[in-house]
Design a binder for these strands. Structure first.
Lengths: 152, 152
DNA sequence: AACAGTATGTCAGAATGCTGACATGAGTCA
DNA sequence: TGACTCATGTCAGCATTCTGACATACTGTT
C-alpha cells in the first residue's frame, strides 16, 4: 500500500483530473441512494434553471453526446419526469420541460449535491473561492481557444 | 444556438467538470493520431515515472477500476509495450515495467500531452499557477475527508 | 495457530457512453 | 428558386468502463 505522492502531482492537468474524479465519486455516492446518476441529475438541474432547453443543448451542458442525452431524455419522458412537445414548432428542436414530478425529484438531489459542493469548498475563504473560479475559467478558455486554432 | 452562460457557471463544481471535460477532449485530440487513448497514455506515463507499479496502483493513478486497467495491461503486454513477471514474488502483486518499445511510444505521446498542458496554462502567471495548484489540492483533500467521514 | 479483515488479480455479464449514419428542417448565397 | 452548409433528433452497432464474484495471499488480533 504505497500512497505517497507521484511526481505527477506537480502537473496541473493531473490535479484537475484528480479533483474532478473525486468530485464525481462524491456526487455518485450521494445520488445513488436516490436512484439517480450524475448525468441524470445534471439534466434535471439544467432544465430547472433553463426550461425549454433542447436535447442537444442539454447534452452540451452535461458534457455528453446528444445521442447519450437522447436515450436519457426518452427514459425521463417515459417515467414522467420531463415533457416534450409531440411536434417541434421550429425546426427539429423540441424544448423539454420539467414536470412537477421531475421538479420534486430534483429537490432532494439538488440538496444532496449542494452538500457535496459545500464539503468541497471546505474551509476555503471567499478569496480562495474567487481565485479558484478565476483560474478554472482561464484554463477552460485557453483549452477552447486551442481547439479553435487547430480547426483552421 | 443559445450559448450564453448558464447560471450554473457560478458553481465551482460545474466549472471543475467543464475544465476537466475540455482537458480530456484536448488530450484525446492530440493522442488519437498516435493511436493512443487517455487511459492508455496515463498507464505508460505512470510506469515511466514509477517503474514496478502494480495493476491496482496503476488503476488508482489513472482513475479507473483495477478491472479496467487489467484489460488494458493485458493488451499492452500482448503488444510488447510492458512486461510483467510470469509469477508474483510477493503476494499476488505483479509489478509492471515499460519495454523499450513502450518507452519509445510514450515519448511522442508525452510531448503531445505536454503541449496541451502548456496551452492550458496559457498566459497564466506563475502566481496563478501556484494558486491553482493550491486550490485544487484543497478541493481534493476536502472531498477525500468527506468520503472517510461517511465510512464510519 | 487460528481467525477475521483487507488487498490483489482475474473472469464474466451488464451498463453506459460513443461513433457512424440517416432524414429533416433552417439559414445562406448565387 | 436551387444548391450548399449546418444543426438537430434519432436509430443501430461498437467500445469502454463498471459491477459482481471468486480464489488467493498478506496483516494483525486473539
Amino acid at each position: 500500500m504505497s500512497q505517497e505522492g507521484i511526481h505527477l502531482e506537480t502537473s496541473l492537468g493531473y490535479l484537475l483530473k484528480q479533483a474532478s474524479s473525486e468530485l464525481r465519486a462524491a456526487m455518485e455516492a450521494v445520488l445513488r441512494p436516490l436512484g439517480m446518476t450524475v448525468t441524470h441529475y445534471s439534466c434535471l438541474e439544467l432544465l430547472a434553471q433553463r426550461p425549454g432547453l433542447s436535447n442537444s443543448e442539454l447534452a452540451r451542458g452535461a458534457f455528453v453526446t446528444r445521442q447519450s442525452m437522447n436515450v436519457l431524455l426518452q427514459a425521463l419522458e417515459r417515467d414522467g419526469y420531463v415533457t416534450r412537445p409531440t411536434e417541434a414548432r421550429v425546426g427539429r428542436v423540441s424544448p423539454a420541460q420539467l414536470t412537477p414530478r421531475g421538479r420534486q425529484s430534483l429537490e432532494q438531489a439538488s440538496a444532496a449535491v449542494r452538500s457535496v459542493e459545500v464539503q468541497m469548498l471546505g474551509g476555503m475563504t471567499p478569496e480562495e473561492q474567487a481565485t479558484a473560479h478565476h483560474v478554472l475559467n482561464r484554463m477552460i478558455r485557453a483549452l477552447r481557444n486551442a481547439d479553435e486554432d487547430s480547426l483552421e
